[in-house]
């Protein structure tokens, strides 16, 4: 059986990877950012908190996917993934090892639950996925957890709604609970954000007040974040702030109520506001599947 024991959210600014890879992570500019992750690095190293598998929700930034194919939700079911060459050579970080048993189980469960996932067996993973690993684990020889990449389109409009992301998180929670393989401590991480705009004359927009409202909304039993429309993210947090819908997949998967173990917010990193929060489920119940297949005992037995 498998259990989701924690949710982590983090920005995934590529410059953080550069800073870590070139030994600048404790300098005057980056030090205050990385210090906000020290608590998490110590916490996640303790055996009771160490995940066997991380479901890592991120977006690809024109690396594995170009404009030829744009999956809204895609799940990596492969054995391993290499760091992508994003135009300046791949990051010298370990390959990312997948967990095909759990990934395929989740993929099948989600499809029966009427989330029509794209399945990926081979791809390279870019900074959206490797920077959060660096922030949580530093620079180990091998990543201490297996990773199930879950890629979300937040580049070409429309991205999925916040509500749909939250509901996908709930479906992931149902899928993980019904895994009948090895005992697994599973984390779900939501990445990207917080406020930033990388384009046009309005570039550089930061909205600390809104970002902190969003961080507040992840904690407790409130579901108000799921109904925030895209236009509000765009107006309030900049055109790339829309990445925060990915955090709602993480939040939805934690169930009815959460508590915050750690929280960090810093401006700026490059063009971006850095946000980071570690959440634990207080009440991890999620609604039952609304689908015919999902409620059908024979269908469940087949997955």
């Amino acid at each position: 059986m498998a259990r989701i024991t924690a949710g982590i959210a983090s920005s995934h600014v590529p410059l953080l990877g550069v800073a870590a890879d070139t030994g600048k992570d404790r300098d005057a500019y980056f030090g205050p950012i990385f210090e906000g992750y020290d608590w998490t690095r110590a916490w996640i190293a303790q055996s009771e908190n160490k995940p066997d598998v991380v479901i890592l929700v991120y977006n690809d930034h024109a690396s594995a996917f170009d404009m030829k194919i744009i999956p809204t939700f895609a799940i990596g079911c492969g054995e391993r993934y290499k760091p992508a060459d994003e135009g300046w050579g791949p990051r010298r970080v370990p390959d990312v090892e997948g967990h095909p048993d759990l990934a395929w189980h989740i993929a099948q469960s989600l499809i029966l639950d009427e989330f029509d996932m794209t399945i990926i067996n081979e791809m390279d993973v870019d900074h959206g996925l490797t920077v959060p690993l660096t922030m949580m684990y530093g620079a180990p020889e091998a990543w201490p957890a297996k990773v199930i990449p879950l890629a979300v389109n937040v580049v070409t409009y429309p991205p999925p709604s916040g509500n749909r992301c939250w509901a996908l998180g709930e479906a992931i929670a149902r899928a993980v609970k019904s895994f009948d393989g090895e005992d697994l401590n599973v984390h779900i991480w939501g990445t990207g954000g917080m406020s930033h705009q990388l384009q046009g004359p309005r570039a550089g927009l930061i909205n600390a007040e809104w970002d902190n409202m969003f961080l507040d909304g992840l904690v407790g039993a409130s579901q108000k974040l799921r109904s925030i429309p895209h236009i509000e993210y765009l107006r309030e947090t900049g055109s790339e702030g829309i990445e925060m819908v990915m955090w709602l997949i993480m939040r939805g998967a934690l169930g009815r109520e959460t508590k915050a173990l750690h929280r960090h917010y810093h401006v700026p990193c490059s063009n971006t506001a850095i946000g980071h929060i570690v959440l634990e489920p207080v009440d991890d119940r999620v609604p039952p599947s609304a689908t015919i297949e999902g409620n059908d005992a024979a269908a469940q037995a087949a997955i």
Binding site: G204, A208, E236
Partner: peptide, 9 residues
Amino acid sequence: MMDAGGRSP
């Protein structure tokens, strides 16, 4: 501008 907190909304 970024070091001073970014562009205000």
